[in-house]
Simulated assay, not measured.
Amino acid sequence: MQASALLNLLQFASPALPIGAYSYSQGLEAALENGTVHNAPTARAWILRHLHEVVAQWEAPIAWRLMQAWTNRDWQGVDDWSERFIASRDSAEFRAETIQMGYSLTKLLAELDILDAEAKARLQREPEVALPTAFACAVAALKIPHDAALLAMLFAWAENQVLVCVKSVPLGQVAGQRMLLSLREDIETAARYAQSVQDDAMCNWAPGLSLLSMQHEVQYSRLYRS
């Protein structure tokens, strides 16, 4: 990877990106509340199941397809996969999460002036922009290799989940870093699967996670928005 592409990737996959990712737990806070996650082993088990049974099965494959569509200027593909992703957000919090962060990243891309006129117009014409759509647009605009971008996206997701556990289980900082290090092989496996899975084999079936998300909407004490 060229140095410029690597630096672009490090910036746009960083948790410091001002799009609000730190404020979401993606159902993990509800699992902490009901005791499903309560220590380091259960936290790691939660993250692994979420990674392999949800993210790798649906979110990562859609992000991979969106990156290809943006790079190839396949606008029908961008529209189709964006619509499918938004339609798959089956709770109010999950839908609000991707729309809020997608909006924030879209605004950031415009303010940084890294999009050409055509790409900017495509984003602006969408009534709602999901986060994977905006991220894929940035990847294409900055000429970041797709395989590296996918790995970075998955790592950023795992890092955010680990940080929730560090704050809320709670885990120590070293324990959190040890857990994140132990997830690398699984992240690579998830990325390979996302790149190879056929369209008709993709699935977002995760009723337990959906129920936890709905329960979180009425949870009495919350630190996170999902």
Rank of each mutant, 00 (worst) to 15 (best):
M153E: 11
M202T: 08
R89L: 11
L115E: 05
E185I: 15
E126C: 13
R89C: 15
T36V: 09
L10D: 04
D147M: 00
K107E: 12
P18E: 07
Y224T: 02
L28K: 04
S210P: 06
Y103S: 15
Y193Q: 15
W64T: 03
A141K: 02
A138M: 10
A5G: 06
A16L: 13
A191V: 02
Q161W: 06
A63V: 01
S4M: 13
G27Q: 04
P170A: 07
T189H: 13
T42E: 02
Y193A: 07
T98D: 14
D80K: 13
A201D: 14
N34E: 14
T133D: 07
T133F: 04
Q198R: 13
P15V: 08
I187A: 01
K107Y: 08
V166A: 04
D116N: 11
V37Y: 02
D147K: 10
Q76S: 10
R89W: 02
F135K: 01
E159C: 03
L6V: 15
C137D: 02
S213V: 06
A87D: 13
K167L: 09
I19A: 00
P41A: 11
V54P: 02
A96G: 11
G27S: 06
L115P: 07
H146I: 08
L51C: 09
Q68E: 12
R122Q: 15
S25L: 02
L151V: 09
E128N: 09
A117C: 09
V174F: 11
Q215E: 12
E188G: 13
Y22T: 14
M214I: 11
Q215L: 09
L108H: 10
W46T: 07
A148W: 00
M153K: 11
Q215N: 14
E53R: 12
E159P: 04
S226P: 05
A3M: 13
S213W: 05
L17A: 05
A16Q: 15
Q11H: 10
R65K: 09
Q26A: 14
D79P: 07
Q76F: 08
S14K: 10
S23Y: 11
Y220A: 14
D90P: 04
A148C: 06
Q173K: 14
E59R: 06
A69F: 03
K120H: 11
F155Y: 11
S226V: 06
C165W: 08
K143D: 14
K107G: 05
A21C: 10
L10C: 09
I19S: 03
V166F: 03
T42F: 02
A110T: 10
A56M: 00
A149Q: 01
L212A: 12
L28T: 01
W81N: 03
E29A: 05
L108F: 04
E53H: 10
L209G: 11
M214K: 14
L180Q: 00
W157M: 06
C165M: 10
K120F: 09
G27F: 00
I99R: 12
